[in-house]
Design a protein around this nucleic acid. Structure first.
Lengths: 176, 176
DNA sequence: CCATCGTAGCTAATTATGTTAGCTATCGAC
DNA sequence: GTCGATAGCTAACATAATTAGCTACGATGG
């Protein structure tokens, strides 16, 4: 190595995640990241390519965490859905980024795997993909609406989530 | 009025919508909007406040169109969901904006109304709000994943949508 | 032990964009 | 016909991303 490295790719990504949660995508500027890791902004380009690549890396790191969170559940539809939601509440900006920014498709596939597995158990091989898409769409949609503040019309959001979960199970129950 | 107006709020919003669909949020710059309506960028501020306000106005106009589209359906869960999806495919960027940008909560409520009505018919007053949230979350989630290209793992997306629709109806059927 | 080479970081500069300040010209009201 | 309000304009500024080119340091090979 030349001049001793004052930072590294992984530190930069970590700083990016912090800033993202603290100030949204707007707060994640190259300047802010640089300041946080202790270099000047142009030096980041020795490690990162550009801001879009950094966002993608942040998204991918977030996916990794989400996958770990899902793997720590009991693998049931309910467990996965609740884990999904808890993760989104803990890392709301990262969760948003996963879908908006160019998260590598490969990464999204990793998130899908546990849901696909659970669906296969429930409805069999033939409809597993469609069932997984039903579950994932509902969970992702619910959570994003919750994060977007679209549930301001009163009612208990937790209750709505559990109600939906019961409905989703019923949707898949009488199937195969 | 002073100096004859060369543009107007509604023209600016219309230009914003065009640019949004053509080039995403990135393509919607004040410069581009100004050029399209035939003035210089700073003149836009005589009509619009700032870019965020313009995005909000574009979002609201999009909501208006969506509501009109939904009101032209038969009002069933299936009709609403398909209308929702068709609208999103016709105006993908506007659809995305509706949730991401600061769409006025009042506007989102207007979209919710037809779904709420259909849900009430199906499950009764007590659970109508929860049921509507189930339907809306699934549809919005499905469509956003479709737009995000999250369905690259093979399978027929249309079939998955119809499968989901059957499931959602079953979820609400055995309820009340 | 020294010469060399590759590279992380730096400063300076460029570009793009949003936004503000201040001027001007024109239209409607009196 | 004069006057006031204001849409649009040019010029300027702030912030951000990014590029160009330099520098210094440390690993490596003689």
């Amino acid at each position: 190595m030349p001049t001793p490295e004052k930072t590294s790719f992984s530190r930069i990504v970590a700083a990016g995640r912090d800033l993202l949660e603290a100030g949204g995508q707007q707060g994640l500027t190259m300047q802010n990241v640089a300041e946080r890791v202790g270099v000047r902004a142009p030096s980041l380009y020795k490690h990162v390519g550009n801001r879009a690549a950094l966002l993608a890396a942040v998204a991918e790191a977030t996916v990794d965490d989400l996958v770990a969170r899902l793997e720590s559940t009991d693998g049931s539809i309910e467990g996965l859905a609740r884990g999904y939601r808890q993760f989104a509440q803990a890392w709301p900006e990262g969760f948003r980024l996963m879908f908006s920014a160019g998260a590598p498709p490969e990464a999204l596939a990793r998130v899908a795997a546990p849901v696909l597995h659970a669906s296969r158990q429930l409805v069999g091989e033939r409809d597993a993909l469609e069932a997984a898409r039903l579950v994932t769409a509902w969970a992702a949609g619910f959570i994003k609406m919750e994060l977007a503040g679209a549930f301001r019309l009163g009612g208990d959001v937790d209750r709505a989530f559990e109600y939906g979960l019961v409905g989703i199970r019923r949707a898949l129950a009488g199937d195969h």
